[in-house]
Computed example of a mutant assay.
Amino acid sequence: MSSRARLSEDEITAALAALPQWSREGDSIARTADAPDFPAAVRVVVAVAEQAEALDHHPDIDIRWRTLRFVLSTHSAGGLTGLDFTMAARIDEALRAESAA
């Protein structure tokens, strides 16, 4: 799932079912997670940045001490695409690698 074509509502619902930590916020999906500590949170951001560059798809990231918030949307498509869900899965992997919940 890496297409930049805008997804239908049914496709979005199905994709969100596979990513239970993510929620819909209008034309975006978002997730908040707590890392064990600030250095772990920064490592997650670095890992996500590498994936974002590889996919050429960059999430909004907010870091507050050990709390991370990620927001994804494909602005050029005017909503959610497969690329958002691919990036969300990679963010989940980076969080798991640092034991963030």
Rank of each mutant, 00 (worst) to 15 (best):
R24K: 11
A89V: 13
R96D: 14
A33P: 08
M87S: 03
T81A: 02
A49D: 10
G78V: 03
P20M: 05
S99F: 11
A18K: 08
R69K: 11
F38V: 01
L83S: 09
P39N: 01
H58I: 03
R96P: 09
A77T: 06
I12Q: 09
A15P: 11
R64G: 09
A47E: 11
A41P: 10
Q51C: 09
A30S: 14
P39M: 01
L80W: 03
S28N: 10
A15N: 05
A88I: 11
A14V: 06
T86R: 12
L83N: 09
P36T: 12
R69P: 10
A14L: 07
I63E: 02
S99R: 15
I91K: 03
T13N: 02
D56C: 06
A54W: 01
T32C: 02
A47D: 10
V48H: 08
A49L: 04
F85G: 03
D92I: 00
Q21S: 14
E50K: 09
A41G: 07
Q51P: 00
A14Y: 04
R31C: 15
A88N: 08
A33L: 06
A18L: 01
F70N: 06
D62R: 15
D34H: 11
R96E: 14
I29F: 05
P39T: 04
V48K: 06
R69S: 15
T86Y: 05
R64N: 14
D84W: 08
A33K: 06
A47P: 14
R31K: 12
V45N: 10
D60W: 11
R4A: 11
E25P: 04
A35G: 04
E93G: 13
R69Y: 05
R96C: 12
R43M: 04
E9D: 15
W65E: 07
D10K: 11
E9C: 02
L7E: 00
W22T: 01
H57S: 03
R24E: 04
G78P: 08
L68I: 05
M1C: 08
A101D: 13
L16Q: 02
F38I: 04
T13K: 07
S99T: 15
H57N: 01
A5E: 13
A14F: 03
T32S: 07
W22R: 02
S23D: 13
E50N: 06
S76D: 10
R64S: 05
D56T: 05
E50I: 10
L7N: 11
I29Q: 05
E50Q: 15
D10I: 13
A94G: 10
